[in-house]
Amino acid sequence: MVYLIFAVNVLLYLFVSLLAARLFYYRGVRYKALRILEKLNLNESELHYSLDHMIYFIETEVPNPLILDAGRSSLYFKQEFVSALYPRVIGLQIYVRLADNNDLLIGFLDVDQIGFPQLSELAFHDKISENELRIIRAYKALHPQTQEEMLDEVYRLCSQ
């Protein structure tokens, strides 16, 4: 019985840590990002970000029939992380759910390429470090509202 306690304890520790790492990573990034924004006297809701660097793998200059047929609700994203134990988000992949379950990757946003004009201005005046910028980018990338806005943006671009 005692051996079981020992084995389960250690394994539980490792597995739960692995499984919950991304959740805790988001919470940690959120905590750090909000502190940075507070320090800079910036309101999160007024922090405009740019998705200019989104890479599309489909034609966006004309309305895309694939996206139009599938509809906005068929778009979804996957977060791309490196390292399981110490996760770090590196990108967001946008997919369109197709009828044959053969979902198609239509866009990718490199987290390091998310632009914030206000923060770039602060960076230009050396008021924010590159590391702090990276934290805010990661926070924005993982924020559910950003992700929804991003899907809206992709749909708008591909359907107009």
């Binding site: 389960v8 539980l12 520790y13 739960v16 840590s17 919950a20 919470r27 940690g28 750090k32």
Partner: peptide, 20 residues
Amino acid sequence: LALSITFIFIMVINGVRFML
């Protein structure tokens, strides 16, 4: 009991470590 204590410990440690 052991599992409960470990679980709480995991949550606390993981909750803290990503803030560092």
